[in-house]
Computed example of a mutant assay.
Amino acid sequence: MEKERTPKNIFVQGPISPEKIAQSVANHQSKTDIGGHSIFLGQVRKDQKENGTVVAIEYTAYEEMALQKAFEIREDIFAKYPLTCMHIYHSLGRVEVGQLCLFVFTSSKHRRAAMDACDELVERIKAELPVWGKELLDTDEHVWKVNQ
């Protein structure tokens, strides 16, 4: 009997650590039916804005809605691609320039499915998840981030 999937908490307070990524990769060594992984890492850029330079992003979300939407996206991607595993981690709170704010990790028997699924997953997360980023500037001002 197949286990019913339920929404998972994708949120991490603050930046996503390189150790979390390394541990996630290491955890998959025992899954010997996997032949390919694809990883996307989103990093906060030091963009120049009209009123200053970005020093950090403060992420907020409508968490209940975001978790449900992430679950729906995960289910769609699992239905479309022959994946073995899929992981999504998104930061909430303050993330400094150079730190990681999004970690998407897909695995499958063959590389193409993992790569295509990862790409589509990232695009859908950016377009559909109710997560907002307030770009904090070095001038003590802020601007709301537009996903691109």
Rank of each mutant, 00 (worst) to 15 (best):
D138I: 03
I125D: 00
Q99L: 08
L136Y: 10
Y81Q: 03
P82M: 07
A127N: 12
V95Y: 08
I125L: 15
I73H: 00
A117C: 02
S91K: 02
E96P: 02
Y62A: 07
F103S: 00
Y89W: 13
P130C: 04
S107V: 10
L137W: 13
A70N: 05
G93E: 10
G93P: 07
M86L: 15
T106E: 09
Y62T: 07
I88T: 14
E135D: 05
H110W: 12
D138L: 03
A79W: 03
W132R: 01
C101K: 02
L136V: 15
T106A: 15
H90F: 05
E64I: 07
S107W: 07
T139P: 03
F105V: 02
V104P: 00
R112Y: 13
L92S: 04
R124I: 02
F78I: 13
K69M: 13
S107Q: 12
T139D: 03
E135F: 07
F103A: 00
A113T: 04
V122Y: 02
D76I: 04
G133H: 04
E72D: 15
R112T: 12
V122A: 03
V104R: 00
M65Q: 11
I125W: 05
S108I: 09
G133V: 13
E64K: 14
F103V: 00
V122W: 02
Q68A: 11
Y62W: 15
E63W: 11
E123Y: 07
A61Q: 04
R112A: 14
D116R: 10
E96I: 10
H87G: 09
L129N: 05
S91E: 01
G98P: 10
H90K: 02
V95G: 05
D119I: 14
C85K: 14
S107F: 10
A66H: 09
A70Y: 02
L121E: 09
Y62L: 15
E135I: 12
L92W: 08
E141T: 10
A113P: 07
Y89D: 14
V131T: 14
F105M: 13
I125V: 13
V122H: 01
Y81R: 02
Y62E: 07
A113G: 05
D140P: 04
E135T: 09
D76Y: 08
L100D: 03
Q68V: 11
E96M: 15
A117D: 00
R124S: 08
E75S: 06
V143N: 09
K126D: 01
G98K: 09
I125G: 01
S91L: 05
L100W: 07
R124H: 06
H87T: 14
C101F: 13
V104T: 02
L137G: 06
F78N: 03
L83R: 01
E123L: 11
R112C: 05
E63T: 14
A66V: 08
A114T: 02
E96W: 13
Q99C: 10
D119S: 10
C101P: 01
F71G: 00
V143G: 04
E72K: 10
R94S: 12
E72G: 04
H110V: 08
R124L: 14
E75W: 03
V95I: 11
R111G: 06
K134N: 09
K134S: 09
Y89N: 13
L100N: 11
K69L: 11
V131F: 10
Q99G: 05
D76V: 08
H90S: 01
R94L: 15
L137M: 08
C85V: 07
L100A: 06
L92I: 14
V143E: 15
A66R: 05
Q68G: 06
